[in-house]
Design a binder for these strands. Sequence first.
DNA 1: AACTTCATCAACCGCTCGCGG
DNA 2: ACCGCGAGCGGTTGATGAAGT
Length: 301
Amino acid sequence: MERPNANVKKGPWTAEEDEVLISHVKKCGPRDWSSIRSKGLLPRTGKSCRLRWINKLRPNLKTGSKFSAEEERMVIQLQAQFGNKWAKIATYLPGRTDNDVKNFWSTRRKRFERILQKSTSLQSQNNKGKSPLVHHELPEVPPDPCSSAIEEVTSCFNNETHNCFSNSQKFRMVPLPDLVKPYLLNVEAEQPILEATPLNMILPIDSPPHYSLSQLPQPQLDLPFLSECKELDQDPMAPDLLDMFGQEVTECEIGQKFFKENAVSTKLGEVKDLSIPNFVFDDFPPEMLDYLETLTSSSEL
DNA sequence: AACTTCATCAACCGCTCGCGG
DNA sequence: ACCGCGAGCGGTTGATGAAGT
């Protein structure tokens, strides 16, 4: 058993340490991590050894190569589907680790937040002495029965005043592709920067190839269906559910498997999972979440 | 050239989960 | 049922280099 803090080395790995670790894995396989230290092979914790193997030494890793546009799209879609389940997402991206995906996502999140911050501070500067930005200046979008709640949330996210509670029919939209390439946001523009983006337009980014359900990459590991999803699979209600809520999924062409893995309901959590990266919701005040819950539960099955 | 800002990556930490005793 | 342990996961931090000013 490992004794904590007893002669444990931390920090960057050396080539020699890598060699030792690789030869351990060759001998014993990628397991028994803690024995590496207990046998005196390396002064590293089992945890550290495992991480080093998973993230750097494992064969067929795409180390050093940037995420392709395809991979970026996959991450966006899968994150919207699974949330921050980086390990799970990584199984759909050959050669990528959970750490890679996590780093990728947090980089974009930070970038987006920074741009949003710049954007709002610029707006408040521009609005000094003027009447504040009001909704009638913004593009008006007819409510969509399927996605209005989501669009509304999206619009609220980009509206620093959060006053969309009182005017739910007019939207200030965040074009979600900019979550991927937020540098496309024109923060200098005086005019309303963002145009309404219907939800079904969100996914195509930079003329992407179309995924079909069968084309979507399979995970590298077998991910068993959740039991409730098996039930869903056999549930005679399932076609109706697909009609009502699967539309977004099928339009997004995320894939039947994903859909099945996430029990469908109109609860807020699933709305989150199906549509918008979770961080969009992170800073919402509780009343907004309650409000969304109300919106979604009004069409409860 | 010096400084700042930003992006990327590697690694650690704390927590949870599952398993075996 | 409980406990201890190892493995795995997600969040976070720190180092480093590139790009911008």
